[in-house]
Design a protein around this nucleic acid. Structure first.
Lengths: 338, 338
DNA sequence: ATAAAAAATCTAAACGTTTTCATTTAGGGG
DNA sequence: CCCCTAAATGAAAACGTTTAGATTTTTTAT
């Protein structure tokens, strides 16, 4: 049991050439039954396992795709990931996942590493949409699919949920219940979801002739803490809002904690709609009305886009897929009579 | 822009041999300032990126570790993963994550693939603790660390949370409040966590001289649905329990849904302790008392164990690390006077 | 200026595959 | 039994690195 057996050893034991062994390993046919059997036996006997590195070196294929997310602890991403993995496995691809902690620097290193490893493609939710660190992917001619956040420096296929529409529906729902003083807890405005959800918010107000009140627009960073702080801020306003729209799951959680701490009665004193369904939504009293996204589908479509790119390197035009979000009405919004 | 530039191209442009280029790339020293600069410039000019496959082939090192989890959608694993990734990054390692969906078959394929890729080590929460599919790892002499579930077929370093102790504390807490009819929603008994938590439950009852009542022991599979069903089952018992201990996070969620549907008043009619802290715990009314685990630490320690194995191939003895869980007392348990 | 020692650089041989092209073998038809 | 064709197999050249060991250049000591 010296070092690992290689294709040579197998060939020797089966009394054939390595070329023939290779053909058997790769199911290329053109090998006699009898010979094939000899080889298969030799493989089993030696416990031979082929070497991916060597194979990659010749074939320029790794059957691996890289996935980059900003925060693996945000439950959104594991759910997307599950969709990606499932489809990838069906097509014989493997998946490398790395998380950047929202740091473009880390992201750059990961990308470099992925390129060194020769991934066949990349699915990414970037930490910085303007980033030049992404260009390496383009230069190396590696297919890329952007998920949830777009890439600005070059054309890449993109899979999004219609953020503006989702936000619009949420805010519209509040307006139709009679609310006028509707606050928004924003995500970072330099990210697609943060920006577009704010757009949807503004659009809804506009369509219903409600002037935008600056003080009701609070900046957050998609983290729980910022949702908490934003909510406390809103509470202190002289024109206290009668409804809040939170731009993502984590901030929703922060917001709920604040509501609780402040004893600001959800559904009674303040109505609420959140972007993204969350575990806690159905456990609160009242249950939260939210805009839900089809995470699994996002992942599946992202992989399918990527797979097409990988197969037909030809320049398909850039594609964009926008999935419809769904407003799930529960009980956190009350009719508001002024 | 023909094909990607290689070390040859760099050498040619810088007017040196590939050996020297290699030394610069790997920071091995022994190269004159002047020469190094020439090479660095050439690298930049060509946009050279080294080829991991070729490098691996020579050095037999990939600086990659594989992580295998049974269900990426269970929030426990992303949290452990975050700990692993952080430490791994510090040490210059990359991480491949795959999820098995609790299928030993899929797990076997993943392992084979990891071996082909030449991962330097594997961290795994296996889908089947008895599985022979794990032996490949042993045969190939690849360092392995088991997390959360042990591996039975060979000795591997193991990082666990003290499941029995955690369960014991939970049940003890209930007993001390006067409960006697304490139900347990079990996890699969062929998994370490499922089994050991049941042990802890039994031990606590025993220590306080409470006979074990079979009907209060309900089997679950660690999935949400099974927690829901189990709770409904308990409700229909003639000796309805006055307290429930749930063996994991997902089943806790299912249990809460059932409680709600059945209108079985948490904290009043039935006390509750869950294993694993969950997002919803602090949003329920009353808030859930739980046994919390230090997920991040689990990941960190797992990687550190693995790293030591990778560095000192020598046969260190098998190590086991058991982290203490923490009972977080909130409001879901009430004094019970019979 | 010269020899010896030290430092820098180079040459060439792996690493384990895949793949092209050449060669051998098997199988049929005459 | 021989020749021809088709099928099966083999030989050898990559793929892009790393790394001994050989060789050249530079530095230091005399």
């Amino acid at each position: 049991m010296e070092s690992k057996p290689n294709i040579q050893d197998v060939a020797r034991l089966a009394n054939v050439s390595i070329a023939t062994v290779s053909r058997v390993i790769n199911n290329q046919g053109g090998v006699r039954k009898q010979t094939e059997e000899k080889i298969l036996n030799a493989i089993k006997e030696l416990g031979y396992i082929r070497n991916a590195a060597a194979r990659t070196m010749k074939s320029r294929e790794t059957k691996t795709i890289g996935v980059i997310v900003p925060d693996i602890k945000n439950p959104f991403f594991p759910l997307v990931m599950a969709g990606i993995e499932q489809k990838a496995r069906e097509k014989g691809y493997f998946t490398i996942l790395s998380s950047t902690n929202e740091s473009p620097i880390v992201e750059g290193k990961i990308i470099k590493n992925f390129v060194e490893r020769g991934v066949d493609g990349v699915i990414i939710t970037t930490a910085n949409e303007n980033g030049e660190h992404l260009n390496l992917l383009k230069e190396q001619n590696i297919p890329v699919v952007a998920v949830d956040r777009i890439i600005k420096s070059f054309d890449a296929d993109t899979v999004l949920v219609d953020n503006a529409k989702g936000a619009y529906q949420a805010v519209q729902h509040l307006i139709l219940q009679g609310h006028r003083d509707i606050a928004i807890i924003c995500g970072p405005q330099n990210t697609t979801p943060g920006f577009e959800r704010f757009i949807g918010y503004k659009k809804a107000l506009e369509d219903y002739n409600i002037p935008l009140e600056e003080s009701l627009v609070v900046q957050g960073d998609f983290g729980e803490q910022s949702g908490y702080l934003a909510t406390r801020r809103l509470r202190e306003l002289r024109t206290r809002p009668t409804a809040i729209f939170s731009s993502n799951n984590l901030m929703t959680i922060g917001c709920m904690k604040a509501l609780d701490d402040l004893n600001w009665k959800l559904g009674e004193e303040v109505s609420f709609v959140g972007f993204d369904d969350v575990d806690i939504a159905t456990f609160l009293n009242p249950k939260l009305t939210v805009v839900a996204r089809p995470m699994n589908s996002v992942g599946e479509i992202a992989f399918m886009f990527l797979h097409e790119r990988i197969q037909f390197k030809a320049n398909l035009p850039k594609r964009e897929y926008s999935l419809p979000p769904e407003l799930i009405i529960r009980q956190s919004c009350r009719m508001w009579e002024k």
